[in-house]
Design a protein around this nucleic acid. Structure first.
Lengths: 216, 216
DNA sequence: TGCACTCAGTGCATCGTTGCACTTAGTGTA
DNA sequence: TACACTAAGTGCAACGATGCACTGAGTGCA
């Protein structure tokens, strides 16, 4: 993918920022959490410690950006089949119920790997703390916005309220499922964990179907 | 080789400078001369055009630096066997005549490759012009200083005047040999060219021996 | 409980790069 | 011969990174 036409200053700035985010993701993966210092992050990113704070207001903001990128990739994964179904352009013709479509896409996408990563790195040392809770809220909001945008592209004729209610109920349900999944699997990234997740997801979808089956 | 302890600013400065020199050496090699623009050099070095002039006063200075590095490596090559002969520390004991030692070292070092490179890139388009002549003068001076330093390490008891006269006569002789070599071989980098160079070198050494054979 | 330490975060000045407009010299063409 | 163009080189201001001293919060220990 060619870089957008930009001047060298902007390119340098973006490179520094990406280096910090990438370094944080690596350290989070290696340490299974967020227990590293700004000095370690700066060294790994090959920038000065002041530069980290030039780009981010706090370490928490860095973690949030790592999450945002993981979740952004997740939403892109979910968007691909939904957008593909729209090949030939979006239509207002009645199609499958949005819930069924969303359910099928979510079922066929591996959510366990990113969830395991985020749960391990953010939930490991201080799960439920106000700091991590804030990150989780931001993450959920981002997922919700991303899904809403994708479904809107697919169903431009859909009532916006219906659509947003669906997404809100869905992401809220995913949060509940996540807590159960974590409790039962310890956020492992393996087949047993995937089986539990699939079961919880089926429960959620079943519960939501009765309320949104007529949405077209 | 570990980088010297330095701060990040100094490291960046040095990286930029080295990138410019390296890019110039590549372009000189690829184009067989110096007929490229500052814009091309800056692009290859991945710096801005202003940065080139932050580090060097002119394109000519960049070329001079490329030469200096090639010649510096050359002098290092010559220095290795001379310094190795001094293993156990320098001595004022009578040793082989300096000329014989210098001759042996020069004979056993491949001078044709760097000479071919420098002749091709600097002599190709405007040989003998005042601009290139200036580069040649600087190059010769650098070689002379380098050789003088090496021989001084090896023969600390030698009379400085004798030593400098030897080096001056030698480098002057090399310049003459180079002109003949160029005329006869076209500055090719091959075995035939090496044979001609060896012959010319023997002539030079033979001519110099009668004047310096007693130097110890 | 007071003290020492570590670390996140901050303010400010400096450095090196960069963007851009400019001048000047050299060159080619009508 | 005048004009247009290219390219080297320059001055100046702005940007982004960096160095460094500093404050405050949290923690551990005597």
């Amino acid at each position: 993918m060619t870089e957008p036409a930009t001047d060298r200053r902007a390119a340098l700035k973006e490179r520094s920022r990406q280096a910090i985010v990438r370094a944080a993701a690596e350290l989070m993966d290696e340490t299974g959490g967020t227990a590293f210092t700004v000095d370690e992050l700066a060294e790994r990113a090959d920038v000065s410690r002041r530069t980290v704070f030039n780009h981010f207001a706090s370490l928490e903001d860095v973690f949030a950006e790592v999450c945002a990128e993981v979740l952004g990739e997740l939403i892109e994964k979910l968007a691909v089949p939904i957008d593909a179904a729209a090949t030939g352009g979006p239509t207002t013709e009645p199609g499958p119920a949005m819930l069924d479509e969303l359910a099928e896409v979510v079922r066929s996408t591996d959510l366990v790997t990113p969830m395991a990563y985020l749960t391990r790195t953010l939930g490991g040392t201080d799960a439920g703390g106000p700091w991590h809770a804030n990150l989780l809220t931001r993450a959920l909001s981002q997922v919700g916005e991303g899904l809403t945008a994708v479904l809107r592209r697919r169903h431009p004729g859909a009532d916006p309220l219906d659509l947003q209610l669906l997404v809100s109920a869905f992401t809220g349900g995913v949060l509940v499922c996540h807590a159960h999944w974590w409790e039962r699997t310890g956020a492992a990234d393996d087949d047993a964990s995937r089986a539990v997740w699939a079961e919880l997801l089926d429960r959620l979808i079943h519960q939501l179907r009765t309320g949104f089956a007529s949405t077209r």
